[in-house]
Design a protein around this nucleic acid. Sequence first.
DNA 1: CCGTCGCGTTTGCAATTGCAAGCAACGCGC
DNA 2: GCGCGTTGCTTGCAATTGCAAACGCGACGG
Lengths: 163, 163
Amino acid sequence: MALPKVGSIGEYIREQRQQAKISLRQLAAAAGVSNPYLSQIERGLRKPSAEILNQIAKGLRISSQALYVQAGLIEDREPPSDVITAIRADDALSERQRQVLIDIYESFRKEKHAEDEQTSQNARPRHDSGSDDEPLPEEFLAALEPYAASSGNGNVTQETKEG
Amino acid sequence: MALPKVGSIGEYIREQRQQAKISLRQLAAAAGVSNPYLSQIERGLRKPSAEILNQIAKGLRISSQALYVQAGLIEDREPPSDVITAIRADDALSERQRQVLIDIYESFRKEKHAEDEQTSQNARPRHDSGSDDEPLPEEFLAALEPYAASSGNGNVTQETKEG
DNA sequence: CCGTCGCGTTTGCAATTGCAAGCAACGCGC
DNA sequence: GCGCGTTGCTTGCAATTGCAAACGCGACGG
């Protein structure tokens, strides 16, 4: 029992922290926890309590729910997908862009729903790319072309090395 | 520190348990925790960890989120004002899909920013339903319905769904 | 009346969380 | 080379979680 299976949560936190480009101590301070403890949490040596988890989420400026999901603590099918709401509320987007994003999002959901019924939860936060602000690959833009005009169904999956 | 304000969470659990007409021990067994501990939790003498909280939620057959909200661990009105945050929080997407969506979103923002750099109206409309007339097809509106309603209401809807 | 069952509660105790203090390693200026 | 600040990690230690065992209470049956 000394080794909790909360590895993924720690990895996720570290990932988010590094993505935010803040040091361990900075996040620890922002979250109101001690630096060593955060270190241990990130490496899966400690199983943070709900309170700590919440603080970290706040410090990371990410959704608490995302963290709980990662921790496997919220698993119910209650879809927290306010993605659409967020998209609609974002006035940094044009109408067209909004529709496209929503359309893509919908298609993704269908895709995933249809595709995977077995891989319920793949803990693979292996950030192979995106750690930094990498410029958007053109493949994505290319994939967007069909969407920019019509809101059909269509597949945006860029060719990746997925099996 | 010694006296957490978790009174509400305990009360809430007890409420739900009694509403479900099950004994403390039954819920304890269903949740996989000990009876005395559950007793202490219900009376606010103990501050259950996220795991325990989750187990109890499962045992009660209620939403884990409702419990976290009661525990003050999730802000009920967690504003998904950020599209990226919402995407990250969406469990219905795969990691890859998330990354793609985020990238697309980023590209959109850059696009728009480049296009009308001067007409940058940085307003923060609270997404007031009504004024915003979006010519979205009904299919989108239909898809939006369940989400459009979920907007900051500090009320914990205790779903009285029969088991 | 007495034993038994279930209810929620209280009492010690092992295991764990979470932290203050201190450590080695890296980079920077002199 | 030597200080200085930063990064992350390791080490003891107090406080807390979470539990097994045991308690008082009320109800049912012999």
